[in-house]
Design a protein around this nucleic acid. Sequence first.
DNA 1: TTAGGGTTAG
Length: 457
Amino acid sequence: MWKIFSTKSLNICLVSLCRVKQLKKAELVLIDGIKLGILPDVVTYNTLIAGYCRLLGIDTGYSIIGRMKEAGIHPDIITYNTLLSSACRSRLVSRCLDLFEEMLEEGIFPDIRSYNILMHCFLKSGKPDEAYNVFKDIFLKEITPSPGTYNIMINGLCKNGYVDNALRLLRTLQRNGFTPGVVTYNILIDGLSKSRKHRRARGLLKEMLEAGQSPNAITYTSVMKSCFKNGMLEEGLEIFSEMQKKGYTFDGFAYCTVTGALLKGGKVKEANECIGNMFKVGIDLDMVCFNTLVNIYCKEGKFEDALKLLGEAEERGLQCDDYTHSILIDGLCKVGCIKLAQKYLKNMKMLGLETNLVAMNSFIDGVCKHGHIDHALQVFESMKVKDAFTYSSIVRGLCRAERYKLAAKLLHSCVTKGAQILRSDKKAVMRGLRYSGSLAEAKKFQKNIRLAKILYY
DNA sequence: TTAGGGTTAG
């Protein structure tokens, strides 16, 4: 039982209960407190608003303001910033603007946090121009920006695809006396890495070290992933070993990233060793770890072991997900067990996991590669959602079956859907049409693809 | 109010 002696202890108790999602209990404690003569204050209500917003949404949180006013307590800047954060979490831009207006009507002036949240909301909603107006407004109103102000803007620019502008903003800020911290560097290193600007990301890491900032687990993860993405396996592994030395591999994240990269590079033995090391250090296995291990077994063709392992995962109360099914179906298709893969596909649908596009794509690819193009076409036609992978597999299958005209038609319709096609697929279709004597068709196909790219990309 | 993240397909 909670012992409440004062409003302060009441508030501490409410914070704890909201944190563990016990809103009903929090309300009961509040009533008990009032019965004992301990009256709630603005902090009490702000705590409740934060809890309700997080667990039941902004409308329920906002309704607390009425109760607050009935109790004779006026909302303050923290009340409104809490509501603003909730609106921002749900990307409710107009709600944020309404709250800003309401604050002013109530005589509460937005502080730097309010502006940061509004700016963040615009950026999260893909409106960098509006966010930049808020950013300028902060300076016009002579409000002192916080490091968060700069980081939110830089991060938002990166996330909206303006990494170069983000970097330019950093340089301007530096010229005006801003010293970037580890968060700023991490934002930009990750932004550059994800925009395939690996060298510039490494350059910034160097600059960060020279500036005396210590990289943390986030910095290392971003750089390591960038190495793997750019085919620099060895360099990525070196970073992983540095992470291990520094104690940044306390969970399964880095181990699974490295194992995945090793498997992609065909290094099954090394992948096995990596996941083995994860077991040795006693990391708790979650479903992603199990999926990673199942992937190794599938690559080795050990399907029985994979299924045994999944039984173990279930015993631990873990549930197979889309990844599990994709890995199994892909593994089975790759070794030609199409019927068994089809059984798993059915099983997956029975479990209500119908929209597993990756599993469907693996299936189509497997069916094509094992020479059953008509079966693959049947599945292809039945699919409501298709992506670039679906088209690529079926086009390759059609080329293998020397059905170039249909391949050309489908590749063209892939472009008209705005999906990227592989140069190798286009080349295979072109070559096929030419060698099979359809020179006019080949020319027409090339022209159509060019045109479609202009129209749909 | 601000940073990263693992596993699947062509």
